[in-house]
Simulated assay, not measured.
Amino acid sequence: MPPKSADKDKSKVHKLALKGSARLVAEFFQYSIHTILFQRGVYPAEDFTAVKKYGLNMLVSADDQVKAYIKKIMSQLDKWMQHGKISKLVIVITDKDTGEHVERWQFDVQIFGNPPTKSKSSKSKPSSSTAAPAGGDQENAAPTSHDDAAATAAAAPEKTEAEIQAEIAALFRQITASVTFLPQLSGGDCTFNVLVYADADSDVPVEWGDSDAKEIVNGERVQLRGFSTSNHRVETLVSYRLGE
């Protein structure tokens, strides 16, 4: 029957669009991790190489262990994104000496048309700021929490890839410019963690464990730009501890 076939085709197109959008958001997360590590001096500048992306010169870590660690995170993130399981990705920078969390970059993800769900946040912490120890000094973890997602948004208008890339480029420019107001970090004295908030029913790898939300105590918060595709909306917030 033609109507049934048409419905099937429509569903197939939507799934393909959602998958492509999920990959685009996951790729954005990957470049975000590299960019924040570089901009905030968590690793030495000479450990990074420039690549062209989003019409910008992006800096990515050339350290094999850091790259392997981020690749491991992205491999899992890709799967969760494509199944609509991710509500939030967080990058936390911690003072190595005091153990105090000094900066927290939060990327909230909304899938258009999806109701809010309870989420479990999966966290991964890579290596120290100077050299990544063998094995990556990784404690892959997954904090458990409930995500207070906002009410669902109506379907987003169609956007061209060029429009989406331009929005992402504008966000990366703002992340780069944030060094003008963020307190200077102790170079070489910080570690970082990656927390991924996934739905409670997500299949979590055994090497990922539970973690708290690693909030900044009495920190300042600044809302940055976001971007959207036809299927996802990403909002950006940075929290930081004021200098003494």
Rank of each mutant, 00 (worst) to 15 (best):
S127F: 04
D137A: 13
Q138L: 07
P44N: 11
S124G: 15
L77V: 10
D7T: 06
H83M: 09
K123S: 05
D148F: 11
I93F: 01
H101I: 11
V217N: 12
V217H: 12
E207P: 07
R23V: 05
G135F: 07
T191G: 14
D210I: 03
S124Q: 11
A151C: 01
I175V: 15
I33N: 05
H83N: 05
K4R: 04
Q138A: 15
I86K: 01
Q82G: 12
T152A: 15
V66G: 02
A131I: 12
F38Q: 11
F227W: 06
K10N: 09
T130Y: 02
D9W: 12
D63Y: 00
Q223V: 10
K10E: 14
V60C: 04
A6T: 06
F48D: 07
M58R: 09
Y240N: 07
K4T: 13
G135S: 06
A62W: 00
H146Q: 08
S178R: 06
L195A: 08
I36Q: 09
E158T: 14
Q65E: 13
G136Y: 00
Q138I: 11
P115C: 01
K79I: 09
P133M: 08
L16T: 08
G188V: 01
R225Y: 00
I111T: 15
P116M: 01
G55L: 02
V102N: 03
D95I: 09
S5H: 08
I93S: 03
D63C: 05
T191R: 10
T176G: 14
N57W: 05
F181R: 07
C190W: 00
T117L: 07
S178E: 03
R173P: 00
A177S: 13
K15G: 11
I168C: 12
F227D: 04
S129A: 14
I111N: 11
V42E: 02
A169V: 03
V42K: 02
L77F: 09
K53G: 03
L195V: 12
M1D: 10
G188D: 03
A177D: 14
Q223R: 12
C190D: 06
K120C: 10
V194Q: 04
I86L: 12
E139F: 05
K72D: 05
S119G: 10
D212Y: 05
D212E: 10
Q223W: 00
S230V: 11
S119L: 03
I91T: 07
L16D: 07
V179E: 13
Q82D: 13
Y240C: 04
H101M: 02
D97L: 12
A141C: 05
Q30W: 02
A50P: 09
I111A: 14
L18M: 14
K15N: 13
N218E: 13
E167T: 08
E139G: 10
